[in-house]
Each structure stands twice: as structure tokens, then as C-alpha cells.
């Protein structure tokens, strides 16, 4: 039942955040990430926390879903914190044999932990409230200026959205091929790494051939429906900023301004 896996992790809803233009959310996420690097003091992090909490509350998404994303980076987080604690030189506050903990190390690792956590949480909120297709559209729209320096922005966006459509199909197909080969006695589990890789051949060959056939079919179907690249193309759902987007931009500007002021004043 691979088709039940929703790609990305979109959580359907109708909150203010869901209704924002995806470009606003993309820019907003970027602004938030920048902000957690601008802030570097306790009052600064307090402002970022209030901002993040407000956004979580506005999204109406169960917080446990939002924090689920943190589990994946837990190991990375622990390693980063460890490295920073033990390897930053400075005023020693505690030591045992070769392990030394400095005041600077503690404060740096604390900051790293907060930044990493907020970064992941912030982007999770974006992917939870925005469908992959909306994100692709937003990127296409925001990157459009690159067209002038001959970056095929439309084509890249089209490729991404097709990939999003076909990943669940290919995952389901992988499952079917595995079953078909298992029925012929194939073994995908036991053996060492080399044996395991070799055992993947009966799975990978049919999968690649099928993917190429699908690509071929799809190209033909697209051509038959008059697809000829981005030129002269209109959009069924063009992105348009609405009032809430302008409001969001005002809030974002104020938020970033606070960050700038804090930095300058040195709080």
C-alpha cells in the first residue's frame, strides 16, 4: 500500500497558513532561518520562540506532527552539540581526563541546538501546510528571473512536479517486483553487503526498464497534448498575492527589523 504514503508531509487544512501564497511561505521560511542566525542572545531567541509559537498556533497542526521532524535529526543534533561542547577552547568550567568543557563551548552548543531545532521546525511547518506542487510552483515563480541567464526554470519545475507524481507509482512498482522475485525464490534480506547488492539486480533491472518505458510513454502523451516547453503557456492556477500575503510580509519585515535592531544594539 505504498500509494498511501503522502509525499512530503502535507497536512490538509484550511488555516491562515494553508491559505497563504506558497511564495510567501517560502520567503517567510527563508526569513525565519536568517533570523535564527541573526539572533544570538537570550532575548533574541525569546522573540524567535514567540514568533515560532504563534506560527504553530496559526497553522492548527497538531504540534506532535511538527516535532516529528526533529526525531530524524536527533542524532545529528547530539553529535553537533557534543563536538561544540568538548572541542571549543576557552574558559574551562569542568574537566575529566582528556574531556574539557568550556564556557564558550556550552554557549555555542546551546546556540547551535536552538538554531538547528528552529530551522527544522520552521521548514516542517512550511512542508506541512504546502503541497509539493504548490512549492514547485512557488519556486518556478520566484526563480523566473533566472530565465534571463538561460536557466530552464520552467523545465526544472516541470521535472520536479512529474517526479512528485511518479515517486509513489514507482514505489508501488518496487513492491510488486520484489514480490514477483520473492515468489521465484529471490532473497533480498540475508547475506553480506556484496551479496545483498548482487541480489538487488533482479529488482533494479525491471524497475529501470519500467521507469524508462513510463518516461517514454509520458513524453508521448505530453506531446500529444500540445506540450512544447514553457513558451506561450498559460496557467490554470497562476499565483496571486492576496491581502493576507501582504499582511504576512508586513509582519515578516517587522520581525526581521527587530532582529536587526537587536544585533545593532547588541542585545
Amino acid at each position: 500500500m505504498f500509494k498511501d504514503i503522502t509525499l512530503g508531509q502535507y497536512y490538509p487544512g484550511d488555516s491562515v497558513l494553508h491559505r497563504l501564497d506558497p511564495r510567501t511561505k517560502l520567503i517567510g521560511t527563508l526569513a525565519f532561518i536568517i533570523s535564527v542566525f541573526i539572533f544570538h542572545t537570550f532575548p533574541g531567541y525569546a522573540v524567535a520562540t514567540v514568533f515560532l509559537a504563534a506560527v504553530i498556533w496559526l497553522s492548527r497542526i497538531p504540534p506532535r506532527l511538527i516535532f516529528k521532524g526533529l526525531k530524524a535529526i536527533m542524532l545529528l543534533l547530539i553529535i553537533t552539540v557534543m563536538f561544540n561542547i568538548f572541542l571549543t577552547p576557552g574558559e574551562i568550567v569542568w574537566s575529566w581526563r582528556f574531556l574539557k568543557v568550556s564556557r564558550e563551548g556550552l554557549s555555542l552548543s546551546g546556540r547551535m541546538a536552538i538554531r538547528l531545532t528552529y530551522l527544522v521546525t520552521g521548514s516542517s511547518i512550511m512542508t506541512l501546510t504546502t503541497t509539493p506542487n504548490q512549492l514547485t510552483n512557488a519556486m518556478e515563480s520566484l526563480l523566473r528571473p533566472l530565465n534571463r541567464i538561460n536557466v530552464p526554470v520552467h523545465e526544472i519545475a516541470m521535472m520536479m512536479s512529474i517526479a512528485l507524481r511518479f515517486i509513489p507509482i514507482l514505489m508501488e512498482e518496487t513492491d510488486k517486483i520484489m514480490k514477483a522475485q520473492t515468489a521465484r525464490g529471490a532473497d533480498f534480506e540475508s547475506g553480506g553487503i556484496i551479496k545483498k547488492v548482487r541480489n538487488m539486480i533482479p529488482l533494479l533491472v525491471p524497475l529501470f526498464i519500467s521507469a524508462f518505458r513510463r518516461a517514454n510513454d509520458l513524453a508521448m502523451a505530453m506531446e500529444a497534448r500540445c506540450y512544447h516547453g514553457g513558451g506561450g503557456r498559460t496557467q490554470m492556477k497562476p499565483l496571486r498575492y492576496a491581502m493576507i500575503d501582504y499582511a504576512a510580509f508586513v509582519i515578516l519585515t517587522v520581525y526581521l527589523a527587530i532582529g536587526a535592531v537587536f544585533r545593532i544594539v547588541g542585545i
Binding site: T131, P132, N133, S161, I162, L164, R165, R213, R214, D217, L218, A221, M222, R225, C226, Y227, R233, T234, Q235, M236, K237
Partner: peptide, 17 residues
Amino acid sequence: NQIIASVVEEDVGFGPE
């Protein structure tokens, strides 16, 4: 292999686009 979009209505709009 002939449905391009991830939402039904967007796929139907592909030709007119």
C-alpha cells in the same frame, strides 16, 4: 503514464495551458 499532474483538475487543465 499519461496523467501528468498530482491533482485531477490540474491534469485536465494541462492541455489548455
